[in-house]
Each structure stands twice: as structure tokens, then as C-alpha cells.
């Protein structure tokens, strides 16, 4: 039988930390939880594939060919790979190389990755009854939401930005001095960071908001990936029939990508930026209403 000794359950009359520390406690705990899962780590490294591909091209371009020249004579194909053009014809000196190396392929991977890491983040808590623990503490639902949002944002940034930044730093460090690689590329790096941060934050916001309404992680993940994929396909089909780029407004990730392209100064898709901004605004308001409706302590507690 447990007994109480003088040790333990001491009084505490020190100060209490503010809301920022509490939000960060939620974020860091979530990140630690995610990174402690072996399955997640495997998936995480798989999702870094575009950045790894970019790394390989930089390595071939600046070390193998410019360096020892080991690949010289391996044929035109390899020489093209080592040239200024990247894997799909994008120059490794341009922002597009770092924005979306696989021309949409990276975005598809990001969507699947985001679904796996973020779509079930609140659904998991709801299923375990954790919301009752959070909402009976000294935090508002908004602080809880922000804590989860920051965690998902960081996980998405890891996938779409940090890998590329490592590639860029690597490229800068190994590029021959006469290539002027740093001078050519550094001006777009802040815009690239801003664009990808915006892209990830929007996706994270929609993901976390959507996650509030269910207690099934599997459903949440399938809903996110399924709905976005379906909308993308529908937009593509309509585009073929109607021959207008505005059909892409049906696809939320195309909308946010269009805005991010504008921020980064990357080659824009043909969708109008102002229409994309309007749709983005509407979707964000809807997500906010959705989250508010489903994160009500009075319905969770008791």
C-alpha cells in the first residue's frame, strides 16, 4: 500500500510561467514524441528525398565534375546532369530549384508527409481523452491549438525548407569561386524562407484545424490526403475541358503554392494571384470557424 512520506507533494509558492512557455511546452513535447518513433523517422527521411536528390545534383555539379572530373566522358546525359540545369531542367542557380525541385512531385510528397505527421495531431489527443487534461489546466483552447500548430509547422519546415537550406549551404561551400554561386543565389534565400514558411504555416493551420473534428487518426489522415488529391484531380480534369487556369482554385494546395511562388519570386503558375489570395482567405476563415466549433472545453470536460 502506498503511503505518504514527508518527501513529495511539497508546497510550491514560486512564480508561474506565462502562456508562451506553456505553448512551447506543448510544441516541444509533441516534437519529442514524434521524433522518438522509429516509424516516423523512417518516413521523415523518405520525405527528405527531394532534398537528397538536390544534394546529389549539387555534389555531381560541383564536386565530381568541377572537382576531379571523374565523370567526364561518361556521356552527354551525365554531363547534362552536372551542368547548370537540375534534374528537370531547373538551374541550380535559380530559386525554382530550391522551391520545388521535382516540379510538383515534391509538393505531392509534402502533402502525404503533412497528412501523416499533422492530420491526426488533435484526433489522437481526442481519442485518448487528452483534451480533458489540457482544457482543465490554465490554458485556453487557442494556446493548445497554437502549440500543436507550431509543432506541425516545424515538422513541415523540416521537410520543405531545412533540407534545401543544408543543400544550399553545402553548394556555397563547395562551389568553385569563379561560379559566383553565393553572389547569385543568396539574394533569393530570405524570400525562399519566407515563402516556404508561409506555405508550411498555411498547410499546418488547415491540417490542425481539420484534425479537431475527429477522434480517428486514420480517418483524419485519409481525409486530408484523399480530399486534397481528389480536388487536385478534379481541378486538372476541369482544366482540360474548360481550358482555364482558374480551375486550379479548387485545389487548396495549388492556391497556397501560387501565393508562395509569388513570395519566393519563383516561376509562377498561370493561376491569378488575386484569386488565389481570395480563396486562401476564405479557406483560412473556414478553418478557424471549424476549429473553434470543435475545440470547446464545455463539450470536452465532464
Amino acid at each position: 500500500m502506498t503511503t505518504i512520506h514527508d518527501f513529495g507533494l511539497r508546497g510550491y509558492d514560486g512564480g508561474r510561467v506565462g502562456v508562451v512557455d506553456r505553448v512551447l511546452a506543448i510544441t516541444t513535447t509533441e516534437l519529442r514524441r514524434v521524433f522518438s518513433k522509429r516509424l516516423f523517422l523512417m518516413f521523415f527521411f523518405a520525405a527528405l528525398a527531394p532534398a537528397i536528390i538536390a544534394f546529389v545534383f549539387v555534389w555531381i555539379r560541383f564536386i565530381v565534375i568541377e572537382g576531379s572530373g571523374q565523370l567526364v566522358g561518361f556521356g552527354n546525359g551525365m554531363n547534362r546532369m552536372g551542368g547548370d540545369a537540375g534534374p528537370v531542367g531547373r538551374s541550380i542557380f535559380g530559386v525554382d530549384f530550391f522551391f520545388d525541385i521535382l516540379r510538383g512531385g515534391s509538393t505531392a510528397l509534402t502533402l502525404i508527409y503533412s497528412g501523416v505527421v499533422g492530420a491526426g495531431i488533435i484526433a489522437r489527443d481526442r481519442a485518448a481523452g487528452a483534451l480533458e487534461i489540457y482544457f482543465t489546466r490554465g490554458i485556453r483552447p487557442l494556446a493548445y491549438f497554437l502549440g500543436k500548430l507550431l509543432a506541425v509547422w516545424f515538422l513541415l519546415l523540416c521537410q520543405v525548407l531545412f533540407g534545401y537550406l543544408v543543400v544550399w549551404i553545402f553548394a556555397v561551400s563547395v562551389a568553385p569561386t569563379d561560379s559566383n554561386y553565393f553572389a547569385t543565389t543568396w539574394p533569393f534565400i530570405p524570400r525562399l524562407i519566407a515563402a516556404q514558411s508561409f506555405f508550411c504555416l498555411t498547410l499546418a493551420f488547415w491540417l490542425v484545424a481539420l484534425s479537431t473534428s475527429t477522434d480517428s487518426v486514420r480517418f483524419a489522415v485519409l481525409r486530408w490526403i484523399g480530399v486534397l488529391a481528389a480536388l487536385r484531380i478534379i481541378a486538372g480534369v476541369l482544366n482540360r475541358f474548360l481550358m482555364t487556369p482558374e480551375t486550379n482554385l479548387l485545389s487548396p494546395h495549388q492556391v497556397v503554392k501560387r501565393i508562395a511562388q509569388a513570395i519566393a519570386g519563383a516561376e509562377p503558375s498561370s493561376m491569378s494571384l488575386s484569386s488565389a489570395l481570395v480563396v486562401w482567405g476564405i479557406l483560412c476563415v473556414l478553418a478557424l470557424i471549424w476549429a473553434r466549433r470543435h475545440l470547446r472545453p464545455v463539450e470536452v470536460v465532464g
Partner: peptide
């Protein structure tokens, strides 16, 4: 809380 509640 009464119901099962833990931080997953």
C-alpha cells in the same frame, strides 16, 4: 477526469 484520459 472520470473517463480514460492520457497524453498519447
Amino acid at each position: 477526469p472520470e473517463k480514460e484520459a492520457f497524453l498519447p
